[in-house]
Deep mutational scan, measured.
Amino acid sequence: MPVRRGHVAPQNTFLDTIIRKFEGQSRKFIIANARVENCAVIYCNDGFCELCGYSRAEVMQRPCTCDFLHGPRTQRRAAAQIAQALLGAEERKVEIAFYRKDGSCFLCLVDVVPVKNEDGAVIMFILNFEVVMEKDMVGSPAHDTNHRGPPTSWLAPGRAKTFRLKLPALLALTARESSVRSGGAGGAGAPGAVVVDVDLTPAAPSSESLALDEVTAMDNHVAGLGPAEERRALVGPGSPPRSAPGQLPSPRAHSLNPDASGSSCSLARTRSRESCASVRRASSADDIEAMRAGVLPPPPRHASTGAMHPLRSGLLNSTSDSDLVRYRTISKIPQITLNFVDLKGDPFLASPTSDREIIAPKIKERTHNVTEKVTQVLSLGADVLPEYKLQAPRIHRWTILHYSPFKAVWDWLILLLVIYTAVFTPYSAAFLLKETEEGPPATECGYACQPLAVVDLIVDIMFIVDILINFRTTYVNANEEVVSHPGRIAVHYFKGWFLIDMVAAIPFDLLI
């Protein structure tokens, strides 16, 4: 008679799926529990143990900040960024110097990925580790590398530091407007667009060049630039800015003055950032001319202004700041037409079709709590990747769950009947059967004279019903998954307890 339990259901295979997918890609990662103190490590794979030199037993239950890997060259700011990422709910990448158990130093890129439950609360953290440099290539500990984003994938490793954006290309926007319009339909740009040429040739750093990471940081200074100062900065030398009595002219307006920039070969870094931020506020060169004239017309309804409409929906549905990093990277690809469009465009503009998908598509409701890094690593669709929660398995109709209350009560009843059979069957065979043979035949009273025979008949009927119930009862397979398919249940029961239950259900007393 089957006594099969499996009270692990309803099970959740999400954690096993993450481990299996990460292991298949030869990654070095740990999984931490966000619900406990210090976000203790609950799993670390073999790749991480080989990377740091510690065994799994030495890593388990330690804080996922990996303070046991810190050393003299470990930056405090990087460690603080990892700790801050564990307090938030967004994906974050941090470069930090770690030390192995043998004392060797290596520069590592740590990717902190939160995993949320159905309520939107962070319950786990996945920390992925990628070695960037070994100890002989690690720089000085005073050099802070965590304020910069990861290198873009479309640049060669040897040319990542030679990417320079020439400031004269930004200063000569109005001069290039006529050349853009003359391109017409034969050019790649839309009317009114501004073409910015980027020099990728390796050259020595000069005062006129600005690194790509500095251009990325310009967006942080746009908020500090007032509207009046932006307007004066875009007017140009024809209309000098008016300053109040006793007030000095704005240095932001002076930063885009061609006369002032041409007199000296070098520009201050602050002026460069502010000038680029001011130019980015204009949607095209037409807006710059309109600002000089004193009238700013409404933005025209053409394809170039609607190019950012799908980007707005993608940004609203993005799951991490990696989408913004990807957008900034692609927006700086050289030799393309940049349409400086305000994100607050007309909502009635139709979304044009684009061959290049900048932001990841909208994630469906079932995966809105899973970050983009987890979705990318697992390579699963929205119909396959579940949320991290207890999910009731989908069972067929008329199927009994093996952990249901009805099955528990039924098993206790069958257990009592088995005990009765084990006690009274030998007793009936030894004593009652002998008395029946010696006594007179009682054929007239039937079952009324033999109450134990009636009980034995009921017990046999219950055993037959138990066999039928076992054909529709779920079970737990070797992978700790609840199986509810009727065919698989029948095959599993035939290979197991079916023969024993059938022999126990045969009414031998009635056959004798």
Rank of each mutant, 00 (worst) to 15 (best):
Thr353Glu: 08
Asn339Ile: 01
Gly139Pro: 09
Glu37Val: 07
Arg73Val: 09
Arg159Glu: 06
Pro72Met: 03
Thr13Lys: 06
Ile82Ser: 01
Pro361Asp: 04
Cys39Gly: 08
Thr201His: 14
Val295Cys: 15
Asp323Leu: 06
Thr375Gln: 04
Ala80Glu: 10
Val215Gln: 08
His221Phe: 15
Asp355Gln: 05
Leu170Ala: 14
Leu349Phe: 15
Asp199Phe: 01
Val384Lys: 05
Val115Trp: 09
Thr13Leu: 10
Ala169Arg: 15
Gln25Asp: 06
Leu343Gly: 15
Asp67Trp: 01
Ser243Pro: 06
Ala85Asn: 01
Gly246Thr: 14
Met218Leu: 06
Gly149Ile: 06
Asp67Leu: 07
Arg280Tyr: 07
Ala350Asn: 08
Ser354Trp: 15
Val325Thr: 14
Ser275Tyr: 08
Asp16Glu: 09
Gly88Thr: 14
Lys116Leu: 08
Phe22Lys: 05
Ile336Phe: 14
Pro386Val: 01
Glu90Val: 13
Tyr54Asp: 01
Ile19Trp: 01
Pro334Ala: 03
Tyr99Ser: 03
Arg176Cys: 05
Glu50Tyr: 08
Val295Asp: 12
Arg366Asp: 04
Asp213Cys: 06
Ala282Glu: 12
Trp154His: 10
Leu349Lys: 14
Ile333Lys: 11
Leu171Arg: 15
Leu51Asp: 01
Gly189Asn: 15
Phe98Ile: 05
Glu58Gly: 01
Ser322Val: 13
Lys161Cys: 05
Ala244Thr: 10
Met291Lys: 08
Gly184Arg: 11
Ala303His: 04
Ile19Leu: 09
Val110Glu: 01
Leu155Cys: 11
Pro10Tyr: 08
Leu86Arg: 01
Ile18His: 03
Phe163Arg: 15
Pro141Phe: 06
Val41Lys: 01
Ile358Val: 14
Pro297Ile: 11
Gly262Lys: 08
Arg271Ile: 15
Ala80Val: 13
Gly24Gln: 13
Val94Gly: 01
Leu315Cys: 05
Asp119Gly: 06
Arg328Cys: 07
Ser153Arg: 09
Val115Asp: 01
Glu95Leu: 09
Pro141Ile: 11
Leu167Ala: 15
Pro63Arg: 08
Val112Gln: 01
Val377Ile: 09
Leu267Cys: 13
Arg280Gln: 14
His302Gly: 14
Ser255Phe: 06
Glu208Ser: 06
Leu210Ser: 10
Ser255Pro: 10
Asp136Ala: 06
Asp111Arg: 07
Pro151Ser: 09
